[in-house]
Design a protein around this nucleic acid. Structure first.
Lengths: 320, 320
DNA sequence: GTGAAAGCGCTAACAT
DNA sequence: ATGTTAGCGCTTTCAC
């Protein structure tokens, strides 16, 4: 069996409680004895048994994250942020992919609830009621969505949309369409607000490559010279459809996306898109969770987005 | 406080041990009492405390996966497979991204070791010695790498390479270069074997987009008409570099990759590539881990790969 | 500042 | 087939 707190106590010639305190409440033991204990700990390679600890403290020292689709590069980036910040605090992270299914998602959170101190939830689809119910089970932090009395970290895609429009207008475009995502999606609605009726809205489309191809087909029936896609995956679908029909981007049509996923920089033409601070969002989510654990009230934190101009946008062909 | 096994026992008019057995050793209690217990369990919404359980059984019911780079879409796919299969067994999964750093990686595994029953390790870079040491800490299953006495799931990229060459030769190509990945990478070496000296080898290059761009530049100095990239990320870099220099793919140069990441189907031209059964590999890894927990000996399992022909390869321009 | 002792919720002998 | 009971390794009163 592994080395226990008793082994340490014996070898350091103190009681188990002193060892315990030396490790988790340094202020309560004399500095010299603390050092002695720490030396033995190191010498023996002692690692406290987390199960025993959490049995008594009621805390697990773990947290969970559930995302709708690990294949969307947006989410691995969030995972990274979460893991990075959690790791600094010695916290481990469980993950789950709900495969875009709200019921699976709720079930996953319920299962996790028993073995984590809180969960980061990326849930564009579940109902407010479901989320409220889950929030009663375990501390929750939402990403890019708001529900009353639940913490959120939000990426300001309204402002992102505003930047897109400003950019397009500075290029002389006057006719553009927004290729919308899921109607219930918070991000979609935020982008709609940022639009302020300055563009025609098509959709909803599936927020992926296939959805983008469908969207492009519809958008071509309008007289728009710029297509604003709900996200990069869709924008890539748009690019693919246009390439297939020999429509040159950006010479004939300008295209933009949202998210700035890795591929956005790798495709040709490289995509002009709104960069989301995904990794940062993951980190902030962990901070918010930590605050909740100290009984702080629910909080919302908004993170800025910014437009990355690449090769898929250009001056309006017929403008001066 | 949450509902405990005592609450269930009291309400079901049995002892705690009967409740315990009804849940974890159904064969040992009379069917009727078992039903009664189960009813109460459901009625009370009882969930066994995992900390208490693992304190006594020594098992956590968790497992971990550590990958070198969550931004490489290859790995989220493995995660998915792992989670899917683990979930079926009620097992939760911790994840960690080592950011391509072998030391971090080892540290991560050591930390995880204390709170999981085993870990799936995607570690192209660590030394055999390190891995052996880690394997002594906790049951390990390696993905795409072999170390004596450690279980592995392998994707047969040797055969994949063979398929690539056969395909290119059927198109009339005779001169091709392989743009190699990290020298120590098992996959790279397996691909080299599959090559059987039928192509010139360049590299090593970084196995990402930037590496692909560098590789393309070098490859253009040869007289090769087909570039075989170590992985899709590199192939995308190659595509990007060629596009920039107005070299038409596949009209002038054919390009292939490995992995069949999501974006391989989404770029233009869509990439001919060797599909790796990543998600399946994740599942099999969990199976192997489960076997190890039952004290089965280390085992290797090889999964087939297959060539997906898309638009980035074409008949050799000057062949009949 | 330190030690003794009582459990946290559960499983696994050991009885019956 | 079921009940009793002794801990798993740790933290936390409560004494001193």
């Amino acid at each position: 069996m592994a080395v226990t707190i008793r082994d340490v106590a014996r070898q350091a010639q103190v009681s188990v409680s002193t060892v315990s305190r030396a490790l988790s409440a340094p202020g309560l033991v004399k500095e010299t004895t603390r050092q002695r204990v720490l030396d033995v700990v190191r010498g023996l390679g002692y690692q406290p048994n987390r199960a025993a600890r959490s049995l008594i403290t009621g805390r697990t020292g773990n947290l969970g994250i559930v995302v709708p689709d690990l294949e969307n590069p947006f989410y691995p980036a969030v995972l990274r942020g979460v893991q990075t910040r959690a790791g600094e605090a010695g916290t481990s992270v469980f993950f789950c992919d709900s495969r875009e299914d709200p019921e699976t998602e709720a079930e996953l959170v319920r299962t996790m609830a028993a073995q984590v101190d809180g969960v980061v939830l990326c849930s564009p689809l579940s109902s407010d009621e479901t989320i409220t119910e889950l929030a009663n089970l375990t501390p929750l932090v939402l990403i890019n969505r708001t529900v009353p009395d639940v913490s959120s970290v939000l990426m300001d895609s309204g402002s992102g949309m505003d930047q897109v429009i400003t950019h397009l207008e500075s290029l002389g475009h006057t006719e553009y369409v927004y290729l919308g995502g899921p109607t219930m999606s918070w991000s979609h609605n935020r982008r709609l607000q940022g639009l302020r009726n300055r563009a025609r809205v098509l959709g909803p489309f599936e927020p992926n490559f296939a959805g983008g191809r469908t969207a492009a087909e519809q958008a071509l029936k309008t007289n728009a010279t710029a297509f604003i896609a709900y996200n990069d995956l869709m924008a890539l679908g748009v690019l693919s459809h246009l390439a297939e029909h020999d429509i040159k981007v950006p010479q004939q049509i300008s295209v933009t996306g949202f998210d700035d996923i890795l591929y956005a920089a790798m495709c040709s033409p490289a995509l002009t898109t709104v960069a989301m601070p995904t990794e940062e969002a993951g980190k902030v989510a962990v901070d918010l969770l930590a605050e909740r654990l100290d009984d702080a009230p629910a909080e919302r934190r908004e993170l800025p987005t910014n437009l990355v101009i690449r090769a898929s946008t250009r001056k309006h062909p017929t403008s001066t």
